[in-house]
C-alpha cells in the first residue's frame, strides 16, 4: 500500500522581511500505484512542495497535513520520512565531498532496511542499477555528486530510487537539463520503479516532453502555491498547446 494525502498545505519561508507564504493550501491525493504530474511555471512553488514533503528545515509548515498510509508525515524527522517510504529526487542534488557513492548507497540502504544488505547481492544490485542508468561502474568510487555532470546527477538520483525502493517517489524536475537519450534512460528507470507493486509517483516538471515517456494518471496545474486545475493526460496536451497564461491570469484576478 502507498497512499500519500496532502491536505490544505500551507508553507512559508523566512525572508528578511519576515515569513513569506509560498504554498497557499495544496490539496492532493496520490492513491496506491498512481502517477501524478505537477506542472507549473517557474517560482510557482513546485520545489517548495517537494521539499516540504521531505522535511527540509528551510520551510515552515503553517497549516494542513501530509499523511502516508495514514501516518502523519509532518511530525517525522527528515530521515524518518525516508524510512517511512518517501523519496525525493532533487532538482539540484547536493555534493558531499569525500563520501563515495558506494559508501553512501550502502549506508542509506542499511538505514532504510534497518539492516546491512547482503554483500553479494548488494554489489550486484548496485552495479546493475548503475549500468541500467548508463553510469560507469567506477561511479561507485567517486564522491557523491562531486564533479558529476547535470545529467549524471539526475541519473544517480534515479539509481538511488531503484535501489532504495520507497513507497512514494517525488521527482523534482528530474527531466530538466537532460538530452533526449538521457531523458529516455531516466524515464525507463522511473517506469521500472512504477512497474513494481503499488508505487506512487509525484512527477514535478516544467515541460510536457517527459510525459511522452512516463504516462501520468493525473495531471495538475500548479500556479501561485496551489493546484489551479486537475485533469487527465489531456490537460498536459492542452498546456503544451496554450501554456500557463490562462491559469496565470486566473490566479492574478483571484
Amino acid at each position: 500500500m502507498s497512499k500519500l494525502v496532502i491536505t490544505d498545505l500551507h508553507v512559508t519561508v523566512d525572508t528578511e522581511d519576515g515569513p513569506k507564504e509560498i504554498l497557499k493550501g495544496v490539496t492532493l491525493t496520490i492513491n496506491d500505484g498512481e502517477t501524478h504530474a505537477i506542472m507549473g511555471p517557474n517560482g510557482s512553488g513546485k520545489s517548495t512542495l517537494a521539499y516540504s514533503i521531505a522535511g527540509h528545515p528551510k520551510y515552515t509548515i503553517t497549516g494542513g497535513s501530509v499523511t502516508l498510509d495514514g501516518q502523519d508525515v509532518l511530525s517525522l524527522s527528515v530521515d524518518e520520512r525516508a524510512r517511512a517510504g518517501l523519496f525525493l529526487a532533487m532538482q539540484y542534488p547536493v555534493e558531499v565531498p569525500g563520501v563515495s557513492v558506494s559508501n553512501f548507497l550502502r549506508t542509506a540502504k542499511t538505514a532504510i532496511d534497518g539492516e546491512a544488505p547482503k554483500l553479494r547481492t548488494w554489489v550486484k544490485d548496485v552495479n546493475a542499477a548503475l549500468e541500467q542508468l548508463n553510469l560507469d561502474p567506477t561511479f561507485g568510487t567517486r564522491n557523491v555528486n562531486e564533479g558529476f555532470s547535470g545529467g549524471e546527477k539526475k541519473r544517480h538520483e534515479i539509481a538511488q530510487l531503484e535501489l532504495l525502493d520507497p513507497k512514494v517517489a517525488v521527482l523534482d524536475e528530474t527531466d530538466s537539463g537532460l538530452d533526449i537519450d538521457a531523458l529516455k534512460i531516466v524515464s525507463e528507470g522511473v517506469n521500472r520503479f512504477r512497474a513494481r507493486e503499488g508505487k506512487g509517483v509525484l512527477l514535478i516538471t516544467h515541460y510536457t516532453r517527459i510525459l511522452r515517456y512516463i504516462e501520468p494518471d493525473h495531471v495538475h496545474v500548479f500556479v501561485d502555491g496551489k493546484v489551479a486545475a486537475s485533469g487527465g493526460k489531456e490537460l498536459a496536451d492542452e498546456l503544451e498547446a496554450n501554456g500557463y497564461d490562462k491559469y496565470l491570469s486566473k490566479a492574478a484576478s483571484v
Binding site: 530521515d79 520520512r81 558531499v96
Partner: peptide, 10 residues
Amino acid sequence: FYLQARGISE
C-alpha cells in the same frame, strides 16, 4: 539534508 533524505540519521 541530502543524506537524511535518504534515511540516514542526523
